[in-house]
Design a protein around this nucleic acid. Structure first.
Lengths: 149, 149
DNA sequence: TGAAATTAGGTTGTGCACAATTTAATTTTT
DNA sequence: AAAAATTAAATTGTGCACAACCTAATTTCA
């Protein structure tokens, strides 16, 4: 039988995730503002920084796969980062459909300024390493399940 | 000492929350589309439905407090719902600064169509009631901590 | 009481997120 | 090889989310 209480805001997992994501963003924003980045731009930079140098190249497609974002989101975002001279966008000569993203010197160097952000944000959670690990595992399970339904 | 791995996407709690929230939204969207609602509009309707009748009244302020949204988000959102004839916006005659939101008949009746959504979404998570309860508790703790820092 | 501070809501501008569509390049199939 | 299908990006349009700012109403208090 349908239960009326199910529709209460307090009983919704999704509302907690929604609220937490907004709250997380509010903690990141002032910190990232010092680097001139938004949270989404920071995520893109994280992927690029994993390749760690100005020679490596990552396609827009790869970024979209990693971050689960489509070109409608990434195209304008990458143009903004290009305008800030953090990266360049060059069409792949082997496959003209693909656009390759490469960090500039400035984009590469920005990593040094971001190095302490994860620890700083972790401290905001007030969690222990073990609790964090536990929560991470649960969220990964949930992500996997929800991706396949 | 700063650890390079901290900047890896896979090690970030925030990225999991961010991804889960988007994924959650993608599961809600097609279901809510049948009611003509977005997820944010659904949240507003949840609050209004808790008051459960066309006589009760909820201020924009109260909605903002409940959902942690400011007038820059709520004002246009409420206008869209008003245009759909789900609610009305009337300035409070006792305090002209305040705007009171009241469900219309249609807005009230829409609740019946939403009654099964929570159970439907719960099934998408693939979780047990106990796991859900456990996760909910952890997220509430995290929300409380992060709100006070 | 009258000035100052606070409060509620609205407006404007920026940046996602994503659906839907378009274009061009590449791959597959016949 | 030509037609059909697929793929990668870009573009357009809608709807948040929020900062910054504005207006008007109310409250506080000197």
């Amino acid at each position: 039988m349908p239960n009326n209480d199910n529709l209460k805001l307090e009983n919704q997992l999704c509302f907690r995730l929604y609220s937490l994501t907004k709250l997380m963003n509010r903690h990141y924003s002032p910190v990232l503002k010092q680097l001139g980045l938004t949270y989404s731009q920071y995520l893109v930079m994280l992927v690029l920084w994993e390749h760690n140098n100005t020679r490596s190249v990552v396609s827009v497609k790869h970024l979209g796969d990693k971050l689960d974002l489509d070109s409608g989101t990434l195209s304008p975002l990458l143009k903004r980062l290009e305008k800030q001279d953090l990266l360049s966008r060059v069409r792949n000569s082997n496959d003209e459909r693909s656009v390759e993203i490469k960090l500039t010197q400035a984009g590469c160097q920005l990593k040094a300024q971001a190095i302490n952000i994860p620890a700083q944000m972790f401290s905001v959670t007030g969690m222990s390493i073990d609790d964090l690990q536990g929560l991470t595992t649960q969220l990964d399970t949930l992500l996997t399940t929800m991706k396949t339904r």
